[in-house]
Design a binder for these strands. Structure first.
Length: 117
DNA sequence: GTTGTGACGACTT
DNA sequence: AAAGTCGCCACAA
């Protein structure tokens, strides 16, 4: 029977693992990178069920608006934000501060570079 | 089987 | 800018 799409989950986990430190990617972008366009929600699901042993940089995945997709102020929200700020990602108005839209010729580039000083 | 929900997103009002 | 609609689809009830 359906092995719960283990294959797809693994592709997603692999894509997430590649997000460089100090950078973030969107759910939709990761989906694309994993060869699963329009499956952004699956990415969220994949992260939710990801084994802790994988040590994925799950906190580097934010929504298309550059915001954290947990309820603001919630426990997971604070944890994610803390982890991001700890690696240099700055926030502006609850959004990842993107002070650089240059090399984004293809799509929104999937990866934004937060301003470092 | 149906319905509602959700770590989403693109489009349209 | 904000809210609504629609697409997507795994899961729980």
């Amino acid at each position: 029977m359906a092995g719960t799409d283990r294959k797809l989950l693994e592709r997603i986990w692999k894509a997430v693992a590649k997000i460089p430190r100090g950078q973030v990617a969107s759910y939709g972008g990761i989906a694309r990178r994993a060869g699963l366009p329009r499956r952004a929600r699956l990415v969220g699901h994949a992260l939710k069920v990801a084994p802790d042993g994988l040590r994925l940089p799950w906190h580097r995945v934010v929504n298309a608006r550059g915001a954290i997709s947990f309820p603001p102020g919630s426990r997971p929200y604070r944890l994610q934000r803390e982890k991001l700020e700890q690696e240099g990602v700055r926030f502006r108005n609850g959004r990842v501060d993107v002070a650089n839209h240059e090399m984004t010729d293809d799509l929104d580039a999937l990866l934004w570079r937060p301003r470092r000083d």
